[in-house]
Design a protein around this nucleic acid. Structure first.
Lengths: 222, 222
DNA sequence: CCGTCTCTTAAGGTGCCCCTAAGCTGACGC
DNA sequence: GCGTCAGCTTAGGGGCACCTTAAGAGACGG
C-alpha cells in the first residue's frame, strides 16, 4: 500500500515516515507542493498525507488541483489546532479527513486505514460514452467533467441507452422500460426527452436510426 | 474494570462514585487536575470520567496532556449545558464522549460501557460533508465548527445520509433503516425530518432527487 | 400528574416535470 | 422537384411529488 507524504518539516516528516512505514505502508516523502503535484500527476497512490504549510505551493492548493482533475485519491490533512479555518476550507475542498497537531501516530495510521478502506471498498460503477459519464448510485451525469442536471425521466432514458451502447433500442423497447405497465404514452413524449438530452449533452451522443429507434455509440466520440 | 473519576464537587463526586460502583466499575475518585495527571502517568485505567472545572489544573489541560503523550484511554467529559464551546474544544482535543449536566447516572454508565468497548476496536471516524461534521461516537453534529442540536431521529437520518454521501438513498431505504420493520409509517414523516435538518444545517446539504429519494453530495457543495 | 420535548399525522400550497399537441424540418421515393 | 412521412422543435397546462406549517399524541423526567 503506497502512500504519498507531503511534509516540509524534517523532524516531523522523518517521524511520520518511520511510523507509517512501521504501520505497513510504503511511504514516498516529498517536501514541497510542487513536487507533490508533479508526483501526483504521474503516479498513483492509495492515499495522500498532506501538510498545509508547504514551500512553493500550499497544501490547500495541491488539494484543489487534485480534486480539479477529478482524482479521488483519499487525502488526510495535517493541520495545527488553531487553524480551524484551514480545516474547514480543506474539507470543503474535498479532503477526506484531518488530524490536528500534535500528532498521534496510531491515530494517523488508523485514519489512513479507514480512508483507504472507504475509498477502495466501493468502487462505484460508472457508465461512459465519449465525454459523458453516468453514475447510477449518485444519479449524476457529467459531460467532460462538468456536472449536468437531468430530470428523472431524462436520467432513466440516458441510463437505458448507456446500458446498451452500440445497440439500437426501438422506440417500443424504450417506452416499455420507461413507462411501467399500462401508462403507455401515445404521443411523442420519448422524442421530446431525446431532444432535451441532446440539448444538454450534445447532438453527437444519441444517434437516430430512422424507422427503428435510437442508439449511443460506445467508446470515444465517433 | 477500573476507571478514574475526576470531579471536585463533593456531592456530585460522591453520587457518581456510588452509582458507577453500583454499575460494576472499580472507581478511583480524585478531586483536582494535578492529582489526575499524577495518577494517569503511573497507573492504567479503562476509562476516565473528567469534569472540566477543576482546581489546580483544568480538565481540558489534563486531556491535552494525556493525548500529548499518545495515551488513548477513553475520556468521558462532564460539562454544563451552556458551555458548548468547551464541549467542541474537548472533542477536538480528543475526548471520546461528553455528558451534559445535570447527569443521568444510567446514561453515564451506558456511555462508559460503549467507550470501553470501542476502545478495544477502533474509534469511528468523523463523517463530514461540506461544513457539516458528524461524530457518531459523541452523537454530536457541528456546522462550520458550531455545535448543532439534533433530535435522535434527525441524527439517525443524517447519519444514514452521511454514511452514503454521493449516493441517492430511496425513501424506502431510509424508512426501512429508521423504522425497524415493525411499522412502516404511511405518512410524510420522513419529509418533515428532512425539512428540520435543512432548517438546522442549511438547504444545500441535502439534495432532493425527485421521484427517488435524497442524497448529500460529498466534498464541496455543487 | 403536569410540563416539555419529540415524533407523527394531516392539510394546504407550490414549483417542477412530463405529457400533449401542433407546426416545422429533413429524408426518402417517385 | 414534390409529396409524404418520420422525426425535430417549441410552448403550455395539468398533475403530482415535495415542501411547509401546525397541532395532537406519546414519551419522558420532574
Amino acid at each position: 500500500m503506497r502512500i504519498l507524504l507531503v511534509e516540509d518539516d524534517r523532524m516531523l516528516g522523518d517521524g511520520l515516515q518511520a511510523g507509517l512505514t512501521q504501520a505497513g505502508y510504503a511511504v514516498d516523502w516529498l517536501r514541497d507542493g510542487e513536487a507533490a503535484v508533479s508526483a501526483l500527476s504521474t503516479e498513483s497512490f492509495a492515499a495522500v498525507v498532506l501538510d498545509l504549510g508547504l514551500p512553493k505551493r500550499d497544501g490547500l492548493s495541491v488539494l484543489q488541483w487534485l480534486r480539479g482533475r477529478h482524482d479521488a485519491t483519499p487525502v488526510l490533512i495535517l493541520t495545527a489546532r488553531d487553524q480551524l479555518e484551514d480545516k474547514v476550507r480543506g474539507l470543503d475542498l474535498g479532503a477526506d479527513d484531518y488530524v490536528l497537531k500534535p500528532f498521534d501516530l496510531d491515530e494517523i495510521a488508523a485514519r489512513l486505514r479507514a480512508l483507504v478502506r472507504r475509498a477502495h471498498g466501493r468502487p462505484e460503477p460508472v457508465l461512459t460514452a465519449g465525454e459523458i459519464e453516468l453514475n447510477p448510485a449518485a444519479r449524476s451525469v457529467t459531460r467532460a467533467g462538468q456536472a449536468v442536471e437531468l430530470t428523472p425521466r431524462e436520467f432513466d432514458l440516458l441510463h437505458l441507452l448507456l446500458e446498451n451502447t452500440d445497440r439500437v433500442l426501438t422506440r417500443r423497447t424504450l417506452e416499455e422500460q420507461l413507462y411501467t405497465w399500462n401508462e403507455a404514452v401515445d404521443s411523442n413524449a420519448l422524442e421530446v426527452h431525446i431532444h432535451h438530452l441532446r440539448r444538454k449533452l450534445g447532438n453527437d451522443l444519441i444517434r437516430t436510426v430512422r424507422g427503428v429507434g435510437y442508439m449511443v455509440p460506445a467508446g470515444t466520440t465517433p
